[in-house]
Nucleic acid binder design. Structure first.
Lengths: 230, 230
DNA sequence: CCACCAATATTGTCGGACAATCTTGCTGTT
DNA sequence: AACAGCAAGATTGTCCGACAATATTGGTGG
């Protein structure tokens, strides 16, 4: 993680944002794993910022759903229960389908189309089998591209709250090459439908993809999830 | 707004939450109107809490999308642009339809059913025409009831980010009794379908309701919205 | 092995401080 | 009178230190 305090050349009011980004990045990159505790003193030292800023970042990330703040115990990287995961997938099916349809619509537009084509290019090339970690970032990039092409920025933001990265982080180790291959070929189907401007096909392909992912994830043993509390 | 600092009888770690709730409440009740600036010094004095806490509350609410924080200018109650409003409605159609279907499914369950029936009771009684402000809170209650009956807590939370209350606050003054009546009868149709356990009818009724609301809101003149900036 | 207690670590909340930036109102000029 | 420019004041960004409340740890004795 990067020291932020030393970089004096930033306009006022942006430092807080940088702190938030640094922590978010550290979580998404797997440097902090789900369940891990984030001790204020450690992070302030590491980042070179004051507790005030760090705590604001914690609030932000907690609202984003990436971390959890337990009173008097501080912040920890969120770990989803099976129920929460299932709920998120249920929502994701709808929003991903919506995004795919919108993207298919917008793919008529030349600018949107070429941006999407470029962002999605890697999934065609990947003849070789991807490592789990490479797939993780590839997967994230793909879905981000679809949401971006949908051209609805509120949707793009909501997507972040669906915690795709958290879910993936929790099951990353259990992914087999077969699962990855299946996922990639589904990505291709979605991309094709979008580029064809076929709303219905895009909708169906997106739903199929998320449904399959849901079944796979929910098929994992209990220990992958946080124990249900409530 | 309530002074919070004086109430000493609260467990540690809850005060911040109370501050957030107080400000949120003040916005939703229309005490602070969209576009209004929230000056830290004023609010700390009014609420009797320190700047630290208030600022944390601001971050939270900003992540929730209820306020906006402009660097070096502080926090202000968010005011939506026409584009943002349109985007939110686009998402809301899908999520509200999902919620309605889930609610219809769960309405088989006796506990869920009676809770829903109770929360929704007022819309049957309302023979008399509601005032705009009474309708506002009634509307909020109704939609909350549907999402609650859906039994997906992540969905319930996402719903808050759809800023129904902000949208309503912006157009509240332009609502005619006719619009209100139309809306209420649509609410009845949704409630009926849910109680009948008819997923398809619930889905359709919900979509129709939100679509009509969208058309109404987007039909408003420009001055109702914040000017597009980007 | 377990219940209990003291020592330590960590968080919740406060208040003050100071510079950077924005806002407002005044002043003199044209 | 309108206006540009500047100075004073208001407001925010960020830091620091402090202290009590709570959680965690490690040990003590039964």
């Amino acid at each position: 993680m990067q020291v932020i305090g030393e970089t004096e050349r930033s306009p006022r009011g942006v430092k807080g944002e940088r702190v938030t980004d640094a922590v978010r990045q550290a979580i998404q990159s797997g440097r902090y794993v789900p369940g891990q505790r984030l001790v204020e003193a450690d992070l302030t030292a590491e980042l070179g910022v004051s507790r005030s800023l760090l705590r604001e970042a914690f609030r932000l990330l907690s609202a984003e759903g990436l971390i959890e703040i337990v009173p008097n115990r501080g912040a920890l990287v969120r770990r989803l229960t099976r129920t929460e995961t299932s709920e998120l997938f249920q929502i994701r099916i709808e929003l991903e389908a919506l995004a795919a349809r919108l993207a298919a619509e917008n793919a008529q537009d030349f600018v949107v189309r070429s941006k999407f084509e470029e962002e999605v290019a890697p999934i065609w090339a990947a003849e070789i089998r991807l490592s789990a970690s490479a797939y993780l970032s590839e997967n994230e990039r793909f879905h981000a591209a679809v949401f971006s092409a949908a051209g609805n920025s509120a949707l793009e933001q909501l997507n972040r709250q669906l915690q795709l990265s958290l879910i993936m982080a929790q099951i990353a180790t259990s992914m087999t090459p077969d699962t990855i291959d299946a996922s990639i070929s589904e990505h291709r189907a979605i991309a094709r439908a979008i580029l064809d401007g076929d709303l219905i096909a895009a909708d169906i392909a997106a739903r199929a993809h998320i449904s399959r992912a849901r079944d796979f994830v929910l098929g994992m043993p209990d220990q992958v999830f946080r124990a249900e509390s409530d």
